Simulated assay, not measured.
Amino acid sequence: MTRRAKHRLMNEINVVPYIDVMLVLLIIFMVTAPMINHGQIELPQIGKSLATPAAPLEVIIKADGSLTLRDRAVSAVEQKVNRVQLINAIKQKQAQNAEQPVVIAADKNVRYEEVMIVMDILQQNQVSKVGLLAQQK
């Protein structure tokens, strides 16, 4: 019986070698970290300053199908227009700024066809930036 007591299995783990390896790795990382080259980002350069975007012209289609135009850059006053006056006003603004954006704000009771007609008129007159204005819930 005394013989069995001497050959008992050891169920403990000796962690001293693991600690030694961890400390050696820590020292290696601490020495090599300052030697690493940090990435340099080369940003592109431009010749002119960036211009702020122009305030969009707002074409409002009311429930009765009438059109009004609001130029938020000048004032918030709505100007009642017909289709010909609308195109003339937009062409005047495009003469000043070729990238003049236009947004269409239609009453929710307006037929979809009316919105498409206005979009078609704008597209035929080379208005490239056309968007739809919606209200958040």
Rank of each mutant, 00 (worst) to 15 (best):
G39P: 01
F29N: 05
A89R: 11
M1D: 03
K91R: 11
V103Y: 03
M1P: 01
A33H: 02
G65V: 09
D64M: 08
G65M: 09
Q124T: 07
L132G: 10
L9K: 03
L50H: 06
M119Y: 00
L133I: 06
D120F: 08
V81C: 07
S49N: 12
I46M: 11
N14D: 15
E114M: 05
V115K: 08
A98M: 14
A54L: 11
A5G: 11
L132Q: 12
Q92A: 13
K108N: 15
Q126L: 13
I28C: 09
I41D: 01
L25C: 02
T32I: 15
L23E: 02
Q96K: 11
S128V: 14
R83D: 09
G47R: 15
P101E: 08
K91V: 01
A134Y: 13
H38Q: 03
S75W: 04
I90M: 10
M1W: 04
E78D: 15
M35I: 01
D20A: 01
T2N: 04
P56R: 12
A63V: 07
Q85M: 14
K62W: 14
K48C: 08
D64I: 08
V77Q: 15
P34M: 14
I13Y: 01
I104Q: 00
R111Q: 13
N125K: 12
M116Y: 04
A76C: 00
V24P: 00
G131H: 04
A73Q: 10
A51S: 12
L25R: 06
N11E: 12
Q94R: 15
S66G: 02
K93T: 03
V118Y: 04
A106M: 10
E78H: 10
I104R: 00
Q135P: 04
A33S: 02
V24Y: 10
E113L: 04
E113M: 02
L69Q: 13
S66H: 09
P44N: 13
A95I: 08
S49D: 09
I13R: 02
M10C: 03
K48H: 11
M119P: 01
I13E: 00
K80H: 09
I28E: 03
A98D: 11
M35N: 12
Q92S: 15
L86R: 10
V81Y: 02
Q123E: 15
V24S: 01
V21C: 05
N97S: 13
K137M: 13
N37H: 03
I36N: 06
V84A: 10
A54D: 15
K80P: 05
P17T: 12
Q40W: 06
I60R: 13
K48G: 00
L23D: 08
Q135N: 06
Q85K: 15
K6L: 09
I117N: 04
E99Q: 14
F29I: 07
V74C: 02
E58A: 03
L86D: 04
M116W: 04
M1H: 06
M1Y: 05
P34A: 07
D120S: 14
Y18E: 00
L122A: 06
E113A: 10
V81I: 13
T68I: 10
M30D: 00
K93N: 10
G65I: 11
E42M: 00
N109R: 15
L69D: 01
R83Q: 15
E12M: 08
A51G: 03
L43T: 07
A63W: 05
Q135V: 11
